[in-house]
Nucleic acid binder design. Sequence first.
DNA 1: GCGCTCTACTAGCGCGCTCTAGTCTGTGTA
DNA 2: TACACAGACTAGAGCGCGCTAGTAGAGCGC
Lengths: 333, 333
Amino acid sequence: MADVAAKAGVSRALVSIIFRGQPGASEETRQRVLRVADEIGYHPDSAARLLARGRSRTLGVMFTVHQTFHADLIAGIYPEAERLGYDVLLSAATHGRSETKAAEALLSHRCEALILLGPEAEAAYLDELGHRAVTVSVSRRVPRARVDFVHSAEGKGMHQAMEHLVELGHRRIVHIDGGRGPGSVDRRRAYRAAMRRHGLEAEVRVIPGEHTEESGIESGRLFLAERDRGQDLPTAVLAGNDRCAWGLLMALTRAGVDVPRDVSVVGYDDSHLSHLMPIGLTTVRQDAALMAEHAVRFAVERLENPELEAREAVLDPKLVVRGTSGKAPETSA
Amino acid sequence: MADVAAKAGVSRALVSIIFRGQPGASEETRQRVLRVADEIGYHPDSAARLLARGRSRTLGVMFTVHQTFHADLIAGIYPEAERLGYDVLLSAATHGRSETKAAEALLSHRCEALILLGPEAEAAYLDELGHRAVTVSVSRRVPRARVDFVHSAEGKGMHQAMEHLVELGHRRIVHIDGGRGPGSVDRRRAYRAAMRRHGLEAEVRVIPGEHTEESGIESGRLFLAERDRGQDLPTAVLAGNDRCAWGLLMALTRAGVDVPRDVSVVGYDDSHLSHLMPIGLTTVRQDAALMAEHAVRFAVERLENPELEAREAVLDPKLVVRGTSGKAPETSA
DNA sequence: GCGCTCTACTAGCGCGCTCTAGTCTGTGTA
DNA sequence: TACACAGACTAGAGCGCGCTAGTAGAGCGC
């Protein structure tokens, strides 16, 4: 920067002004300085800028690397952040890299706010994060923590899915839950409530699972093993999310079970994968772009007005009926 | 930091030493300072650290958000980077956020090296990046650019796949290519060479595509439309990558075409999705963990020894035979 | 001529840390 | 006793910017 200033015959301060796009420099000088900078190959150093300015205008996003729905969310976060003049940095949690590490990395890189996509860490830790920086949790409710919360109305989504299945004549409806996964508790509860409402209390069955393909496959194997022992298959399965639904679909299909003739399968998320299945997946759609937008806006608004309380946005999900759900098999009535 | 120093009754310099884990502080003081820091909630500010140290020890990784193979690579990058004492920052290219933007973001956040996963930007731009920072390209060859290159031996992979198919009696083998996607050129070339070698020049057919599910679906539709017009289906298809193979599989399966009885399908990558298909995907395996390891090591080695020339690592891919490839239908001989 | 405002620009402090070049003890050695 | 030396610690410069407070000069009205 000093070199640019010297070569252009101005002070460093003016170069600074020009690179920040601030008024206070004549058009002529501006052009000259920019040209000189380009020749030298000068790019402002954001570490120094950050340090001097005290603000980074950077949002940190933590996600899970194989969670396809997160990819959809990320795609939605970038444009909104850019619109509001914020940078975005990503940090992934993977097998072998805890959420804690991912979050700390973002924080130490001076992200002003954290957007956590479906965090599974302990509530106490999330609350701590909420005190260290503006924090938004997507999909995972963290009660009593200083954390904004964006999610879809899990209850409504499950309700729609259940109505759909019951209308198709299903009674033996099983739910594979999402374990510690975000939204799981609410979905499980809504499933139970819906079953009860339809007088199907006796049929309630929740299989512990998680939001992975493997979990779906495992549940599928379980059903098949039960069938081989003479039990009936469920007529419909409400999976914890699309990935789980997919795994289940694979397991059933491989074993010659016809979906939806023998078993109906319903997912959750409507990640972009769900219409890329052998038959389109009936699923509960969460609008990723909209959720991302809300998350970014929550973060930015609280950054610009620290007085603000943590808020909650509930978006309406919508059942998307595709090919994996159909009439209940007659024999099962 | 000053607060910690004051409260612990030492100088800032000593606090710095302790937080860097350097020798030069007694165990007793060390404990005391750390305890005080914890009480105050002090975390070292990496922007300032970075500025003062002149080095960030941070690797920037650019990836494409929906490219599942990239997720596998990222999962491999973290542990290796951590082992070598480097931080990792992620920046995604998406629809609406160009690779240029993603890369510039990393650079302006002071990443010392860039690891580009399957970049599709112009070679000239990649070369420019190579001059601005240590740069490693994974999967995409950039001739004559100052960029390290990690990839698998595309030729060998395609060779194995072709031998496999020919052995199964296939002759009408079509290749859906990957367009501008990384490795496409080499794969296309290897496909042509293999066809020639087996005296199948007349059957050579390359369908322009890309590394997406959509591309696979489209190609599938094309084949089906041709069949409806009386043409024969190909007996085997070598897709550009797993995602493309998957899309193709979906399109064919939906139309009642049996894979592998009627058509064999072979993918490329062996992303973690490929064994999650209705029937396991026969595919050419690229070892993501190993590629990631090489990429990180290249970057770090060149950072610590700037004299080093850009290098190339070629890893041997390996055909993984699963369920989607089988004997050629007899009628097609 | 004066004071005023406005534009174009500059001086220099400070952001929070690292790092070099020390100082100050206490201990072993000739 | 004198001297070297290691260990524990500190002073203070400097990393590359942003920003506040300021100056110099042009233009204007009276």
